[in-house]
């Protein structure tokens, strides 16, 4: 649905992004993660045919973003960082204007406007000037605007960046709705929680794509599913040996009465590990599951330094 090959853009002698390559499948929610200035917005602008690449190529719905820019823009919906609504116009007038720009026929336009405003709980405020809307309502209307022409791909550039927690919750809820509807979405964000919750795959960007994978696989690669076991006493070699021989156990380490066991699967391995410990004479005080967070993976990838707190319960 979206493909980038060695995509790059420079401004003067400075490269905003370079060597961006990934492929996005239909129905996938794909996150672009990175700090401010990492090139996320530039990447979104390149993929939405708003600016031309300095190098590389990209396709949206099979169309080259440079050679067929007008057609690409007809197939994408973009939610910019700010809602960018016309505040002296009502919700319906805003959507109607953009529907006209996309040349949606009048009857269909009216039908879709009503459907989208109802979907986002804005129908009752349809004739209110958008200048009187709350931030969350504005962002929801901007999402409706991006969907009005039923684009093949939706691009959301920092949709919750400038919102208070309540408004951000409303927008995330709207994104969840789109996700369940099977829409293909590119979500640019530096909110790792949001990405972990909404994205099927994420790309870490910092001037270039550093890593692309699903949040689950990234977490797994950063340490895998882990069980921490609190013991009454420091475990001896017998106890450690009893665990290391188990096929589903990848590694075992001990620190001051606490065992850290990296396993293939927490649910299947935990009962056997507890039984093995008791059988080896250990006194088990507590067992808990821990996983690496996307945040810890993010810092590892971005800073190249796995922090001591890379694992969190």
């Amino acid at each position: 649905m979206v493909r980038a090959e060695g995509l790059g853009r420079s401004f003067g002698s400075l490269w905003a992004v370079r060597d961006v390559s990934f492929e996005l499948r239909a129905g996938e929610v794909f996150g672009l993660l990175g700090p401010n200035g990492a090139g996320k917005t530039t990447t979104v602008r390149l993929l939405t045919a708003l600016i031309a690449p300095s190098e590389g190529r990209a396709w949206v719905d099979g169309l080259d973003v440079v050679e067929r820019a007008d057609e690409v823009r007809a197939r994408i919906g973009l939610l910019t960082e700010t809602p960018a609504l016309y505040e002296r116009m009502t919700a319906v007038q805003n959507l109607d204007f953009f529907g006209r720009l996309h040349q949606v026929p009048a009857g269909l336009r009216a039908e879709r406007i009503e459907r989208l405003l109802r979907l986002f709980d804005l129908w009752d405020r349809r004739n209110t000037l958008t200048g009187q809307f709350s931030k969350g309502m504005k962002q929801k209307l901007a999402i409706a605007r991006a969907m009005l022409h039923e684009p093949a791909v939706l691009f959301f550039d920092e949709p919750t960046a400038a919102l208070d927690p309540e408004a951000a919750f409303i927008v995330r809820d709207a994104l969840e709705t789109l996700r369940t509807m099977g829409r293909t979405i590119v979500l640019s964000t530096h909110n790792l929680d949001e990405a972990a919750r909404l994205c099927d795959r994420v790309a870490f960007i910092r001037g270039q794509v550093l890593r692309v994978d699903s949040p689950a696989r990234l977490r797994q690669a950063a340490g895998g599913p882990t069980i921490e076991v609190d013991l009454a006493a420091e475990p001896g070699d017998t106890i450690l040996g009893a665990l290391r021989v188990r096929p589903g156990v990848w590694s075992v380490s001990a620190t001051a009465g606490c065992l850290t066991v990296v396993v293939e699967d927490v649910r299947t391995e935990t009962p056997g590990i507890v039984r093995a410990l008791v059988h080896a004479g250990a006194e088990v005080l507590g067992v808990r599951e821990t996983t690496a967070t996307l945040e810890s993976v993010y810092f590892e990838v971005m800073c190249g330094q796995p922090s001591s707190g890379a694992f969190a319960s």
Partner: peptide, 14 residues
């Protein structure tokens, strides 16, 4: 000021 042009420019408008 409202940065509304970016949304317009992301449409097929020339």
């Amino acid at each position: 000021q409202s940065r509304s042009l970016e949304a317009v420019l992301a449409t097929p408008v020339r």
